[in-house]
Amino acid sequence: MTIEAKLAELGLALPEAAPPVASYVPAVEQGGMLYISGQLPFINGQVMTGKVGDFTNPLGRTMEDGQIAARACALMLIAQMKAALGDLERVERIVKLGVFVASTPDFIQQPMVANGASDLMEAVFGPAGKHARSAVSVPVLPLDATVEIDAIVAVKPK
């Protein structure tokens, strides 16, 4: 089954690959690898904002909200893969995800938030979607995003 067919089977539609918000490119293919810049969680065209664990603020987010944001970041990563490679069948393996979670100092479930992205990568790419990962807390992300994720992807030659 192709990756596009798998996405359809999962009921997923890729968003349009987001343009950069500053002076960088979304992805660089070099030496059989694709390095993808950090992607934000666009949901219905808007960036999900707010810190995970901040329940004193109306924009405070739960762990489950964080997982939804991480999943949205993963979809955007896949959209960037398609834009950069032209064909998702060139993806050989998801090598590593770097997950940044905007959260309060006492929130310690960053790995659970990151699972929103990791589980999606495995669902879409099968065993090739299993990857190494970092999941860290940060005080703030660009545009006040809840989560940001970058990726390293092994790719097949053209």
Rank of each mutant, 00 (worst) to 15 (best):
residue 2 T to R: 11
residue 3 I to Q: 04
residue 3 I to A: 10
residue 6 K to R: 15
residue 9 E to R: 12
residue 9 E to M: 11
residue 11 G to T: 11
residue 13 A to P: 00
residue 14 L to S: 12
residue 15 P to Y: 03
residue 16 E to P: 01
residue 16 E to T: 14
residue 16 E to C: 00
residue 17 A to M: 03
residue 17 A to Q: 07
residue 19 P to I: 09
residue 20 P to D: 09
residue 22 A to N: 14
residue 23 S to C: 06
residue 23 S to H: 14
residue 24 Y to V: 12
residue 24 Y to D: 12
residue 26 P to L: 06
residue 26 P to Y: 00
residue 31 G to N: 13
residue 31 G to P: 01
residue 37 S to Y: 04
residue 37 S to N: 14
residue 38 G to V: 02
residue 38 G to C: 02
residue 39 Q to L: 04
residue 39 Q to C: 13
residue 43 I to K: 09
residue 43 I to H: 10
residue 44 N to R: 11
residue 45 G to M: 03
residue 45 G to Q: 03
residue 45 G to R: 03
residue 50 G to N: 02
residue 50 G to V: 01
residue 51 K to L: 11
residue 52 V to Q: 00
residue 54 D to M: 02
residue 55 F to R: 03
residue 55 F to N: 06
residue 58 P to L: 08
residue 59 L to K: 13
residue 60 G to D: 02
residue 60 G to L: 04
residue 61 R to S: 04
residue 61 R to T: 03
residue 62 T to W: 11
residue 62 T to P: 09
residue 62 T to R: 07
residue 63 M to R: 08
residue 63 M to E: 13
residue 63 M to V: 08
residue 64 E to C: 02
residue 65 D to F: 04
residue 68 I to H: 06
residue 70 A to P: 05
residue 71 R to H: 14
residue 71 R to Q: 15
residue 73 C to W: 01
residue 73 C to T: 05
residue 74 A to I: 11
residue 74 A to T: 06
residue 75 L to I: 03
residue 76 M to K: 05
residue 77 L to W: 10
residue 78 I to D: 01
residue 79 A to F: 09
residue 81 M to R: 03
residue 85 L to T: 08
residue 86 G to Q: 03
residue 88 L to N: 08
residue 88 L to G: 05
residue 88 L to E: 05
residue 89 E to A: 14
residue 90 R to W: 12
residue 92 E to C: 05
residue 94 I to S: 03
residue 95 V to T: 10
residue 96 K to F: 12
residue 96 K to M: 15
residue 99 V to E: 02
residue 102 A to E: 09
residue 103 S to C: 14
residue 104 T to A: 05
residue 105 P to V: 14
residue 105 P to R: 12
residue 108 I to F: 09
residue 111 P to G: 12
residue 111 P to K: 12
residue 112 M to C: 01
residue 112 M to S: 14
residue 112 M to K: 14
residue 113 V to A: 07
residue 113 V to R: 09
residue 113 V to Y: 07
residue 114 A to D: 05
residue 117 A to I: 13
residue 118 S to D: 02
residue 120 L to Y: 02
residue 120 L to H: 01
residue 123 A to T: 02
residue 124 V to Y: 08
residue 125 F to L: 08
residue 127 P to A: 07
residue 127 P to W: 02
residue 129 G to H: 09
residue 132 A to P: 00
residue 135 A to H: 06
residue 136 V to P: 00
residue 137 S to C: 04
residue 137 S to T: 04
residue 138 V to T: 04
residue 138 V to K: 05
residue 139 P to K: 05
residue 139 P to D: 08
residue 139 P to S: 08
residue 140 V to T: 11
residue 140 V to N: 07
residue 141 L to Q: 02
residue 142 P to D: 06
residue 142 P to Q: 06
residue 144 D to C: 00
residue 144 D to M: 00
residue 145 A to M: 04
residue 145 A to P: 05
residue 145 A to H: 05
residue 146 T to G: 00
residue 147 V to F: 04
residue 148 E to R: 05
residue 150 D to P: 05
residue 151 A to C: 10
residue 151 A to I: 13
residue 152 I to Q: 13
residue 152 I to A: 12
residue 157 P to A: 14
residue 158 K to I: 15
residue 158 K to P: 15
residue 158 K to D: 13
